[in-house]
């Protein structure tokens, strides 16, 4: 327990120092020089995000507001664009934070194609934020495809709830 805390703390120090030099080097694999496992790096990333969100308070919640999509579509609705515009304002207020856009799909398609489709949805929101002047170095995307449904049901309402982008403030 103690040892993993030390690893997490040392990872935090390492990452903060990298961030200080404006370096966005991605950690996560062998050859990244850190000598720590993927699991330890992931724990450190999650812990650092948690601390950041704690510090941001209400703004982090507002940044997390989801947007939804029509079936088999990555087009942004008027409501989605409004939500994204508000996110851009918050990101201007907090120039130190970055945003991860998570793309998600409903349960009808198949896993791998949906993983690629979710990426398209995440990119649609990231592109919109970028068009609003948020630097692309502050935006990243990850797709969960249909692997993380909010509602596991098979109704139209459940499908609509699951076709979404989620947003996470990060460092």
């Amino acid at each position: 327990m103690m040892r993993s805390r030390i690893v997490i703390l040392s990872m935090l120090v390492l990452m903060l120092s990298l961030a200080g030099f404006g370096c966005a080097k991605k950690a996560g694999g062998p050859g990244d020089g850190s000598g720590t496992s993927w699991e330890d790096q992931e724990r450190a990333r999650l812990e650092q995000e948690r601390l950041l969100r704690e510090k941001m308070g209400q703004a982090a919640n507002e940044l997390a507001q989801m947007i939804h999509f029509a079936f088999d579509s990555n087009n942004l609705t008027a409501e989605s664009r409004q939500i994204l515009t508000r996110k851009a304002e918050i990101m201007r207020q907090y120039p130190q934070i970055k945003l991860i856009v998570e793309g998600n799909c409903d349960q009808r398609g198949t896993a791998e194609y949906n993983l690629a489709l979710g990426e398209r949805r995440a990119q649609a929101a990231a592109q919109y934020l970028s068009n609003l002047g948020i630097g692309s170095d502050r935006l990243s995307t990850v797709s969960y495809g249909k692997e993380r449904p909010l509602d596991p049901g098979h109704s139209e309402a459940a499908y609509a709830k699951n076709r979404r982008d989620e947003f996470r403030a990060t460092y």
Binding site: A27, G29, W38, R45, S140, V142, S143, Y144
Partner: peptide, 22 residues
């Protein structure tokens, strides 16, 4: 391997922990 901010490539070679590539 889907992580909190990226997908990674995992390769397991018949024993032990898989390698994770960025």
């Amino acid at each position: 391997l889907i992580g909190s901010r990226s997908h990674y490539l995992g390769v397991w070679s018949g024993g032990g922990k898989p390698q994770v590539y960025t």
